[in-house]
Computed example of a mutant assay.
Amino acid sequence: MVQLVGAGVLCLNPVGEVLMVRRADNGQWDLPGGRVEPGEETQAAALRELREETGLNGTVPELLGVFSGSDTLHTYPDGNTVAWVTVLYLCQGVQGVAQAADDAREVGWFGLSALPSARSAVTERYFHTLAARRPV
């Protein structure tokens, strides 16, 4: 097992919906994000992953939280397991039309009370952190 640094973005549109992507590797819904490349700033990585997975360009995001622990373990189809330390940003401004790309099978906007049920434990933590920060 290896530990990697990831960066992701929780995007909210003007009507309060959140952008989610369905992962191609396990079919679960998650937030756009991925590995931070060596020497890359986490904020730049989060915006790059947003663009790669959805085609959207984000505005300067604000830090929402840093997530690590047993619920961040992810086993890939090839059997490799990664322990992620994910820096998550909140972005309330995006430009473009969302389209699934890269390793995202689907992309969609969901109301916070109508999120898709196929989510990981760490994705649940992301939404609990958002709710604690700003009542929904």
Rank of each mutant, 00 (worst) to 15 (best):
Arg22Asn: 09
Glu37Ser: 08
Pro14Gln: 00
Val97Cys: 08
Ser68Ala: 08
Gln92Asp: 11
Glu53Phe: 05
Gly79Leu: 00
Thr81Asp: 02
Met1Arg: 13
Gly33Glu: 02
Gln28Ile: 08
Val122Thr: 02
Gln95Glu: 09
Ala100Val: 13
Arg51Gln: 13
Thr129Leu: 00
Gly79Phe: 02
Gly34Asp: 03
Pro135Trp: 05
Pro38Thr: 10
Tyr76Val: 10
Gly34Ile: 06
Thr81Lys: 09
Pro116Ala: 05
His74Glu: 14
Val97Ala: 10
Gly79Asn: 06
Ala24Trp: 08
Ala114Ser: 10
Gln92Ser: 12
Asp71Phe: 09
Met20Gly: 07
Val85Pro: 04
His74Asn: 08
Asp71Thr: 11
Gly111Lys: 10
Gly8Pro: 00
Val5Lys: 12
Arg51Trp: 03
Ser70Glu: 11
Val136Gly: 14
Leu19Gly: 05
Glu106Thr: 12
Trp29Lys: 01
Ser68Asp: 13
Leu56Ile: 10
Leu56Met: 10
Leu10Asn: 03
Glu41Phe: 06
Thr86Tyr: 03
Leu63Trp: 07
Leu112Tyr: 07
Ser120Cys: 02
Val107Ile: 07
Ala121Glu: 08
Cys11Asn: 04
Glu62Thr: 15
Val87Ala: 06
Tyr126Thr: 07
Gly69Val: 08
Arg105Ala: 15
Leu50His: 01
Arg23Ile: 06
Pro14Cys: 02
Glu124Arg: 14
Leu31Gln: 02
Gln95Val: 13
Tyr126Lys: 12
Ala101Gly: 08
Asp25Trp: 12
Pro38His: 08
